[in-house]
Amino acid sequence: MTRPVIVLLAALAITLPLSLLAGQVWIDPFGPPVPNATAILMELRLPRALLALILGSGLGAAGAAMQGYLRNPLADPGLFGIAPAAALGAVLSFYTGYEIQAVTLPLFALTGAAGAMALLALIAGRSGGIALFTLAGMMIASLAGALTSLAISLSPNPFALSEIVTWLMGALADRGWHEVRLAAPLTLLGLLALWRAAPALDALALGEAAARSLGVEPARLLALMILAIGLIVGSGVAVAGMIGFVGLMVPHFVRPFTDQRPSATLLPSALAGALLLLVADCLCRILPLQGGELRLGIALSLAGAPFFLRLLLKLRRELA
């Protein structure tokens, strides 16, 4: 195990139990007993923390893999257009009625993600070309975005409208074991697919021709990437809405502590993503904010956009 992995595991081991104590009701393990402490911990905070770990690790690793696949440090799992497509599916579920929405929302979101994956594979799959693939992803993202806007503008009633908009912002509030059971296996499958793709991502550092000469089959790698990102991002959107920037930021934090091979950044990025989402969600929970808590998706975008800007400036300096 490498040093960054050990450090991150230790940080997670410390942060996870601490995060369970923080929230609107603070639980002091050495203080007087808090009413309903067990219920708060087991039914509210533990599943929420686990969800942060699952989604964070998935998004972190997916970001590292995407940057490796596109050979670009500015790449993000969002480039595939899978998240907007999953969001479109989720938004459509608001039309099915409140009673069955607990079932239809993740189902529709995953269907949206699967649809985007299939469309990507259809457009760019046979050639395995990376540029075509990225453009196809952007096209899907903008199409899904437009359809989501249409769905919102045709929203059946103002209540549904506010539901949709709030949900789109992305959060882990009020999520429970049901969501953990949904996201955990899908994310795990996605991570396995990324792990299978790791050697090919390393070879790709040498360019497509050299990678093929080292035995990489571009079409197979593309299929693995679509599968992995689809599972991870699709299940993430299904349980928590849109949470961006994790996949973009996290690999940059860990890359300097690795030998820079994409495969070497996968595991540290997964752990750092888990840590980032756990801490960010915890902060969202305890920040005093009028009218409820800060949405996790907003918080990460607020932190992520300046980070992206700083990255751009740094790259510009390096290129100059």
């Binding site: 550092a205 040498l206 360019g207 000469s213």
Partner: peptide, 13 residues
Amino acid sequence: YLPQAGEVAWNLS
């Protein structure tokens, strides 16, 4: 096989 454009994506050692 060594291609002509000796591109390497990351700043590897």
